[in-house]
């Protein structure tokens, strides 16, 4: 039995998997009332460990777990849940970051995550600082397997991670895998030949609200799960009021709707890619030519 789709939400989202609950939160709360793509959703952890999810009277047929989250598909899944190859390296330590709801489109949250320009201001003292606010040129292109990829990003960061107390210039690679899923690879502070993985997984609750789930995967150097989670919540707690004050709350896809500069290249690519995919939920689509 599939879930009714009266809003005719585009298959690229309706038939895909989305994160809907952090397993650790369910373990401590057992029941979560949330939403997905405009539908109400209740997720329950049963005493025997099984997970149930329903939207009104309809039980969800497609439910799975990965990376410490419950994932759901409301339609007929056309592909698997997103996979990050680096996270499969056996010595890596996975951490989930504590999910937080945001009164803004999840597409805005992806764009904010991609934005190098805000680091020196919103995350001053951690992920950037004045006067090191210039954005050096970086490269954006299509990602193999779909999405977009930004490479060659370099940012001076006074405190790039909970393991660092001194600043240095950090290498970043961004990958957008799905419209609501973005990942950042960042040189590990101890072993700079390996990359920390920080994924932001947005649950599109409504067009103008989302839940931000985060998944991190670190090489096993001095990683303290509690400090990683605390750092992630501190950083996202700085982003949240900024995101909630962006207007319009949905992401405009028209290139002329908002003024962008060279440093916003990944945002421009992201918006164009969303347009090509036909993503409308959470967006203000381009006006027909």
């Amino acid at each position: 039995m599939s879930i009714p789709n009266p809003g005719r939400i585009e298959p690229v989202l309706w038939d895909d998997w989305h994160p809907v609950a952090e397993l650790a939160a369910l373990r401590h709360g057992r029941r979560l009332d949330t939403g997905l793509l405009g539908r109400p959703l209740t997720v329950t952890l049963r005493a025997d460990g099984a997970i149930d999810a329903c939207s009104g009277p309809h039980a969800l047929p497609h439910l799975d777990t990965r990376y410490g989250f419950v994932w759901a598909c409301l339609g007929a899944p056309v592909r698997d849940i997103v996979k990050f190859a680096a996270a499969d390296e056996p010595d890596r330590i996975p951490v989930t970051g504590g999910s937080m709801a945001v009164a803004a489109s999840g597409l805005r949250a992806v764009e904010n995550f991609l934005d190098l320009g805000h680091l020196g201001y919103v995350h001053q003292g951690y992920l950037g600082e004045e006067p090191h606010t210039d954005i050096k040129p970086y490269t954006v292109g299509p990602r193999e397997g779909g999405g977009i990829r930004a490479t060659g990003c370099r940012v001076y960061q006074p405190r790039p991670s909970p393991a660092d107390t001194s600043g240095y210039e950090v290498d970043y690679i961004y990958e957008v895998h799905r419209p609501y899923i973005v990942v950042l690879y960042k040189a590990n502070p101890v072993d700079r030949t390996r990359m920390d993985l920080i994924a932001l997984l947005l649950q599109p609750v409504s067009e103008e609200s989302c839940v931000a789930h985060s998944f991190m995967s670190y090489p096993p150097h001095d990683v303290n799960e509690k400090s990683v989670r605390g750092f992630q919540q501190l950083i996202f707690g700085q982003d949240r009021p900024i995101l909630e004050n962006q207007l319009p709350k949905r992401l405009p896809l028209d290139a002329k709707a908002e003024i962008s500069v060279r440093a916003d290249s990944s945002s421009a690519h992201y918006r164009r890619w969303l347009s090509q995919l036909g993503v409308r939920f959470g967006a203000i689509p381009q006006a027909p030519a």
Binding site: A24, H28, T96, G98, G230
Partner: peptide, 12 residues
Amino acid sequence: VPVDLHPIRENR
């Protein structure tokens, strides 16, 4: 001394 409140509920 950080206490891991969310989602682990170390306070309990």
